[in-house]
Design a protein around this nucleic acid. Structure first.
Lengths: 331, 331
DNA sequence: CTGAAAGCGCTTACAG
DNA sequence: CTGAAAGCGCTTACAG
């Protein structure tokens, strides 16, 4: 005879029976209540282990009207800038019992990653990528990371100070004696913010901006194409600031093709302090956005908002830092 | 007076009332039943849009005893080889109404990503990374991707043919006239499989294996360190096969430091056909594991297993292909 | 601590 | 198609 209970998963009832306690007590143990005596607690944990019991998130979410899950919307798994951000958030929120779920927006034509989290009853949302459409109040706390083209009503904001990062990079080049500093830009919110900061910096010095790549994607191919443009229009550049490290990698190839040595003929600066920048073969001077710290701040903002839903909107800006490597040197 | 219904989310009852139909009918529409007349269907969809209704995954999962979610366990978001795999799986399973959830194993000391999916009642699991411990039958279909050190009882297996990929690379180098071909290896299942294939190939030719890096991590730093070792022990190499593209990037730096031109003095081959390999500045000959196709096969295996739980275990091996770029040339 | 109870928002037969 | 009903596996008061 088939034993039906051996086929289906154990429930909280099975654990209660096996431990010789009430179902309520098992629930208290699962939620780490302090009202439970150590002996009973041990008995319950032993039963859980023995039965290989795993509480159903679905049932817990439905009953408690909260999922203890924070949904993080990113642009694209291929662009790993979000990884440090995630670690920072994780460090802040896991101790409070929240788990992080990640989904990419990617090529979708609707905000389906966001919709998925809303359907999954995430307790809070982090938007760390560009959305398709402006969003009304999501009904749960939301923090937007970085400079974005779309808004989420009522969201808190945490971002790295892009303008300050660009200034750090350009000041560094100026101190090294560079005067003709070109910029390879691209599409999207961050690139736009960095371009604006570049323009302000150059104009403050009374010089003309040397920019290329405005129509490019912010990837390796875009960096290559942008740098080719830049060298054609402004062969006099002695330094190039790329909108990010990946574009700098592309730019490096364009410089090599043009016979320009780095850093001998042209200094090269990226942005993000990605693994690419740290790779010995590139060893790229870059700006560290300090995404881990951005993540910590985002986590704190979320916890505060979950605690005090009506707190005034928050905007926090994290100071970036320059990381000098061998791709830049004195003229 | 506060209106309580305006504070809480709309439910299937609210939709039914707004559309003037029964709750059962709304459920049928949500599950895309064909029993519903177009007019009523439209009425329900209109009510859903009007109320901004989103069905609760938690409630649906609990009631239906399935989540329509497939959990994918990966090693580390920083190593983006899984992205093509994911796309392949997605292409196969989303048409059947499944969504993919991704979680990384990373530095965790327990198989918490896997545990999370089991707690979340994923309908199936894909293991695309190294687990901490061997697993008993998970109670849901499971497919393991690649060569792994840990087992999952009853799992199906889909992998790229590592041995064949290594042979493609080495045959290519041999045809170009290389005889002293070194290998930079590292830790982990894939590196081990590639090393074994390298040894077999070299021994078949009656030559001695030239290997370094066995203790290294399979990242850029490991590739650098491994190549430094290799050049020290075997300065006679005219070609280097790295265990993956990231290690090849590290090896490239070591070669440059040693004054060896690529491909002039030493030919360099990676593995994975990652974005790195495609970058113009590296332009790396590499082996494409065809992870998109692996993903398609994994998706098919999962759907089959969900359909026929007792089908015999499946092992599918996908043929890789060589991608020749400028990092290799005739001796 | 226990135990009985209500309820979370759905799905799933089932009788009509 | 409708409508009443049971149930999924939890959480959450609440009386004892």
């Amino acid at each position: 005879m088939a034993n039906p209970t051996s086929r289906s998963r154990p429930t909280i009832y099975d654990v209660a029976r096996a431990a010789g306690v009430s179902k309520s007590l098992v629930s208290l143990v699962l939620n780490e209540s302090e009202l439970v005596s150590p002996q009973r607690r041990e008995a319950v944990l032993a039963a859980i282990a023995r039965l290989d019991y795993r509480p159903s998130h679905a049932a817990a979410t439905l009953a408690a009207a909260r999922s203890r899950t924070i949904g993080v919307v990113i642009d694209d798994y291929r662009n790993p800038w979000f990884v440090d951000l995630l670690e920072g958030m994780r460090a802040e929120v896991t101790v409070k019992g929240y788990r992080l779920a990640v989904a990419e927006q990617r090529s979708a034509t609707t905000d389906e990653a966001l919709e998925g989290f809303l359907g999954g009853r995430a307790d809070a949302i982090v938007v760390a990528g560009e959305l398709i459409a402006d969003q009304p109040d999501l009904g749960v706390p939301c923090v937007v990371i970085g400079v974005r083209e779309r808004n989420v009503a009522g969201a808190d904001h945490v971002s790295s100070d892009e303008a300050s990062g660009v200034r750090l990079a350009l000041d560094h080049l100026a101190v090294l004696g560079h005067r003709r500093i070109g910029h390879v830009t691209g599409r999207g919110g961050s690139a736009r913010a960095r371009l604006a900061a570049y323009r302000r910096w150059v104009e403050r010095l009374g010089e003309a901006p040397l920019v290329a790549g405005a129509a490019q994607e912010t990837n390796e191919a875009g960096g290559y194409a942008g740098a080719v443009e830049l060298l054609k229009a402004h062969p006099e550049v002695t330094a190039v600031l790329a909108a990010n490290d990946t574009m700098a990698l592309g730019a490096r190839a364009a410089l090599a093709e043009a016979g320009r040595q780095v850093p001998g003929d042209v200094a090269l600066v990226g942005y993000d302090d990605s693994l690419l920048a740290r790779a010995r073969y590139l060893d790229l001077t870059t700006v560290d956005s300090r995404n881990y710290e951005v993540g910590l701040a985002a986590g704190r903002a979320l916890l505060r908002r979950l605690d005090v839903p009506d707190a005034p909107p928050l905007t926090e800006v994290i100071a970036p830092r320059l990381v000098v490597r061998t791709s830049t040197r004195r003229v």
